[in-house]
Design a protein around this nucleic acid. Structure first.
Length: 366
DNA sequence: GAGCCGTGGGG
DNA sequence: TCCCCAAGGCT
């Protein structure tokens, strides 16, 4: 068994940081330690891979170079910058945080993890990352990489799906991390976790820290980390109504709470909410959709079933199957309609989720 | 504490 | 097709 005494810890720190100095990745947000840059990158990287984030980060810095630019941006522009990244509340919380910084903090970032965690959208991981990288505070940044790396090194078998496990890792990492280069240490762990110490196919034989990896030395690497699995996505049936009013498409904005908050789609109706009988026919479905339009929007819809394969889209815990309906509405007063008519050429100005892109593609709307 | 909240990639 | 994973936070 590896004994993590003071000498081992020093050895590990130097081995890891020497490797990081040689092999650490050159990423756009590592060009300086500006808290704004660190913050934006960390929020984007939540549950999202580096290669996905890079182009989004570059464009975001182009559009919103400072905290003030972000605080004052129109929300549609903000969501457009985030379109396709997912977890859209992240960017709305970022704007709230930016406004909070300007209003209540005189534009000055708190420099401690506890102070940062008080801000909207910044949890324990992101607070640790910003505090260590931007402000040189010796605090851990416990993300999926840190869980994986240290569970293997130290053979910690607490379930990382449980919130209470975080403190076990925070204590262990706090004891091991150096006080002179905490930000580099935390980032080195992330680079390690995404290269040699991946979840599925680790290459520990070539890892710079393999001699510190107790799970590897015991041939039990793939048993770590211990994590209970999540339930499968629940199937949900929808109809999407591709309705034209003259040369405009009817688009609705989703509510600010819940899935895909404030993004735009064609009217999406949960089939459950149409109160259909079990043996309902296609005609029954179309009649129910027409009634829905009249009731909810005060619009007269002429609907027809589109002979297209349903669109399927899987979210973290819902799997949508979406039957497509085409139709036209009579030119009308849209006062009761929770959306607007949009010309085809203007559609790309609305922030839309991926599922909407799939719907338009299936219906050949371009 | 458990459920909610997106998307892309790999096996 | 399905499952799991990827720099989590909020309620």
């Amino acid at each position: 068994m590896i004994e993590w005494n003071a000498a081992t810890i020093k050895d590990f720190q130097h081995t890891l940081l020497d490797w990081y100095d040689q092999e650490g990745r050159d990423l756009p947000w590592r060009h300086d330690h500006e808290p704004y840059h660190v913050w934006v990158s960390e929020i984007m990287l939540q549950q999202t891979q580096v290669q996905t984030v890079i182009p989004y980060y570059e464009r975001f810095m182009d559009w919103f170079p400072t905290v003030a630019d972000l605080a004052n941006a129109p929300e549609a522009r903000l969501l457009k910058a985030w379109e396709g990244l997912g977890y859209y509340s992240r960017v709305r919380n970022m704007q709230r945080c930016a406004q909070q910084l300007l209003a209540d903090y005189d534009g000055q970032w708190p420099q401690t993890a506890a102070g940062l965690e008080a801000l909207v959208g910044i949890g324990p991981y992101t607070a640790g990352a910003i505090a260590s990288i931007a402000f040189n505070q010796p605090v851990p940044a416990v993300d999926g990489n840190a869980y994986r790396v240290f569970s293997r090194l130290l053979k910690i078998d607490d379930d990382i799906a449980k919130p209470q496990t975080r403190q076990v890792f925070e204590q262990a990492i706090t004891r091991i991390m150096p006080h002179d280069r905490p930000g580099d240490f935390n980032q080195a762990i992330m680079d390690l976790g995404s290269s040699y110490m991946t979840a599925r196919q680790p290459d520990t034989a070539h890892s710079p820290v393999k001699r510190f990896n107790q799970a590897y030395l015991d041939g039990q690497e793939l048993a770590y980390p211990v994590k209970t699995k999540k339930p499968r996505p629940k199937p949900v049936a929808y109809v999407a109504v591709l309705a034209q009013m003259g040369d405009q498409w009817l688009m609705v904005q989703r509510p600010s709470t819940g899935m895909l908050g404030n993004l735009w789609t064609v009217p999406l109706i949960k089939v459950d909410e149409l109160d259909l009988e079990e043996d309902a026919s296609t005609a029954d479905l179309l009649a129910a959709v027409t009634a829905y339009f009249k009731r909810e929007y005060r619009l007269i819809l002429t609907a027809k079933m589109l002979k297209l394969r349903p669109v399927t889209h899987t979210f973290t815990h819902q799997k949508w199957t979406i039957q497509l309906i085409g139709g036209q509405v009579q030119p009308a007063d849209l006062a009761y309609f929770a959306g607007k008519g949009v010309l085809l050429a203007e559609l790309d100005q609305l922030p839309m989720p991926k599922v909407q892109e799939k719907i338009f593609n299936r219906a050949n709307v371009h």
